[in-house]
Design a protein around this nucleic acid. Structure first.
Length: 206
DNA sequence: TGCACGATAATCT
DNA sequence: GATTATCGTGCAA
């Protein structure tokens, strides 16, 4: 592994560093880092793909109001909303609005930067590091993110937090969202163009 | 590379 | 009982 990356220093993002608004946060997070402190070591990844689920969006879990599952979505910006779906996948979102407003940003893919040997390959043969974190279900599995993280503050001292950007900014892509059945035409997905860690079909990665 | 399909279980109707 | 912000496999081109 690259020696520079094993000694990666990451500056913590404060809540006031996060922009107001779901669409703004979804774009802002591209290129920023996510850090998970494990007993065995630190995982660091660059966020390379997000989707916005803003207030009033028919595809959003918050659309029909607060329920036991989605209540974390209504926390003020900078909290985790983690839920289980398809019988096998955990999904990580970052809340994005004022307290009481349900909205969030789905973290869909990471570029592994540190702690790669600690990321769990699951059933797949991880020939490339990107295979571990390409897709929202994969990254949650590799990073051991589950219900325990639902509702935690990712701007506070804790096991999971947001860090400053690593590496130079690269061109931002925009597209429709993946895997939804309502409000399918809204261009609320953002990604780093050409990055091999971005999920989805090729036409949604260019 | 790109589809179709089944697995799988919590949540909601 | 239906739905689901997915994934891996298998098969066609």
């Amino acid at each position: 592994m690259d020696i520079a990356r094993t000694h990666l220093r990451v500056r913590r993002l404060r809540r006031r560093d996060l922009p107001s608004g779901t669409l703004e946060l979804a774009q802002f997070l591209i290129g920023k880092t996510l850090v998970h402190e494990l007993p065995e070591g630190r995982l660091v990844g660059r966020i390379v793909e997000t989707e916005a689920y803003p207030p009033g969006d028919q595809a959003a879990h918050a659309f029909r109001g607060i329920t036991p599952r989605n209540r974390s979505l209504f926390l003020r910006r900078g909290h985790a909303y983690v839920y289980f779906t398809y019988g096998s996948c955990w999904m990580l979102n970052i809340t994005s609005e004022e307290p009481g407003v349900g909205a969030g940003v789905l973290i869909r893919a990471l570029e592994p930067l540190a702690g790669i040997d600690l990321m769990l390959p699951g059933k797949r043969k991880a020939s490339r590091a990107c295979d571990l974190t390409r897709g929202p279900g994969r990254l949650a599995a590799a990073w051991q993110i589950d219900k325990r993280y639902d509702g935690i503050d990712v701007c506070a001292k804790g096991p999971l937090w947001l860090g400053a950007a690593q590496g130079p900014p690269r061109p931002l892509g925009k597209s429709i969202r993946i895997g939804i059945t309502r409000a399918v035409d809204r261009p609320f997905r953002f990604y780093e163009r050409g990055n091999p860690c971005v999920s989805g079909p090729a036409r949604l990665r260019r």
